[in-house]
Amino acid sequence: MKQRPEKFFDEHGNRLDGRQRDEMRPVDINIGVLSNADGSALVSYGKTKVIAAVYGPREPTWRYNVLPDRASLYVRYHMAPFSTEERKSPAPTRREIELSKVIRESLEPVVMTELFPRTAIEIYVEVLQSDGGTRTASITAASAALADAGIPMRALVGGVAIGKVDGVLVLDLNEVEDNFGEADMPVAAAPDLGLITLFQLNGVMTLDELKEGTDMALKAIERIVEKEKQALRESATEVEAL
């Protein structure tokens, strides 16, 4: 386990990794990285690296859970054993089960499941390297993979986590800020529709801090979704040559 740093900011007010308080880590989005899946995306926020794959809509293999009026969404968020500082057992933890649920619920508002009754849309997310913000990076990756699979969506979704360290709100917290900070507030949204689709808070904030943090997150998500769009456009330029 890493040590709690004495201070989270240097004398210039920069964070331990050199960022300013409202600065994202470099975001990288790659579409169509897998050949078998119907859609896929590899997303990194700094050292955090996640891969998402989408299968479907297809007739579900778990026959007992068929919805007559829409497609059911299956999400599995899973961490690779080598993704963490100490090796993680591959058996799913309570944390992974909860995150799978909130990731699913962050995507359900935009996926047009009503178009494909009785089918399943399966989303598999594997965290390859964890350095804070894996659930929000997973949401961005899953959204991009859904679009890559051609599944009709009302809009794209992106996510980012806000933290509070040394009493200051910071954007896109890394692992040390997450482990030893005072609050972790992951947010996901569909900026094109102005909808918040994931909101969690682990920690304590004043109402003003909560509002300021949410604003900060929503501004950053706009930029993340813009990157997502750019990556999708690039992956689609092939047909322009038609």
Binding site: M112, A147, D148, I151, P152, A155, R233, V239, L242
Partner: peptide, 18 residues
């Protein structure tokens, strides 16, 4: 198909397209 839908009176696309 479901490729174009309306949101608050405006047409939007639901899939990547040209």
């Amino acid at each position: 198909g479901p490729y174009i839908y309306e949101f608050q009176g405006e047409k939007r696309v639901s899939v990547v397209g040209l």
